[in-house]
Every structure is written in C-alpha cells, then in structure tokens.
C-alpha cells in the first residue's frame, strides 16, 4: 500500500507526515505524530473520546481518514493549555473533580470548548444534549456539567 504525504496544521504548527490511506486521523495523531492526548474508546463514533476539531468543526477523529485532514487545521487537547496555563475548562474539571479514570476527559474538554465557542451561556439541558456523544463510565456526568457551567460563567466574566 502506497503511503501518502499529509500536511496539516495541528494546534497551530505545520506538520507533515507520511500515512497509510486506511489510517484514521486518530491513528495518525497517536501513532505517527506521537500525540496521545486524544483517546480511542470505541473507534466507531460512539464514545467521543477521540474528539478533535477539524477546520473548527467538532468531529470524531476515528471517523475521519488521516488523509482527509490534508490541508486542514486540527485542534487537539495538546493545544488547549497555553504553556503552563490551563484553559478555564481544564481548571474547572479539576476543581469539580469532573474525572476519575480520565480517558473520556480530553474528548469532553474539546467538545465542551466547541460548545462554549458556539454558545457561551448554555443551559444544563443544552450541555447534556451537546455532550451526548461523549461517554463517561466513571463520573455519572453531574460533575462534568457543573464544571462546564462554572467555566462558562468564568469565561463570560462573572
């Protein structure tokens, strides 16, 4: 199988990798770029652990071929903190203990960030519907919702 060059901008950096056309974007991030922050839960679009944004659109990276990301911008969990400074969502997830094992957390953070960009003041119901594609088997979701609401309030400046 002929490998193909894929050029993407990942978290603002130009990245060029050689990848097999059957590899998903998730495979390419984890196995070719050594960016293992994005997790694989199901590989079939059901759990959201692999959430990233592609040209600003929230997607499951397990449902995108690496080669489809050619020429596009990818944002992953590795780009969320600014150096040592955590994103408000990351801080609030810690403050509210919105994680236990943590495998769902990168996906939930990326999905929550996408929500707040579209809707800075979501209701609890809107958060629950938006995050329906992100499964968490540990927390029971309640603390996640609280963390997102708290981060949203801080980001709105109150």
């Amino acid at each position: 199988m002929a490998k193909q060059y894929v050029t993407t901008i990942v978290n603002g950096d130009n990245v060029e990798v050689l990848c097999d056309p059957t590899q998903t974007l998730l495979d390419v991030l984890r196995d070719e770029m050594d960016m293992t922050g994005t997790k694989e839960g199901c590989g079939t679009g059901d759990c959201g652990a692999c959430s990233v944004t592609l040209d600003g659109v929230l997607v499951c990276s397990c449902l995108v071929l690496g080669i489809e990301a050619n020429g596009k911008k990818v944002e992953t969990i590795e780009g969320m903190a600014q150096g040592e400074e955590l994103h408000p969502l990351q801080r609030k997830f810690i403050d509210h203990v919105a994680l236990q094992c943590g495998i769902c957390t990168p996906g939930l953070l990326i999905a929550s960030k996408a929500l707040l960009e579209e809707n800075p003041d979501p209701t609890e119901e809107e958060i629950r519907y938006w995050l329906a594609g992100n499964l968490c088997r540990c927390t029971g979701y309640h603390k996640i919702i609280e963390a997102v609401q708290d981060a949203a309030a801080e980001m709105r400046g109150n």
Binding site: G45, S51, L54, V57, C60, L63, A111, G133
Partner: peptide
C-alpha cells in the same frame, strides 16, 4: 442523526 461530532461529518 448521531452526536454533534457525527453531524459535523
């Protein structure tokens, strides 16, 4: 159809 992520594609 699916989730927010799925409808993005």
């Amino acid at each position: 159809i699916g989730s927010v992520q799925v409808r993005g594609r």
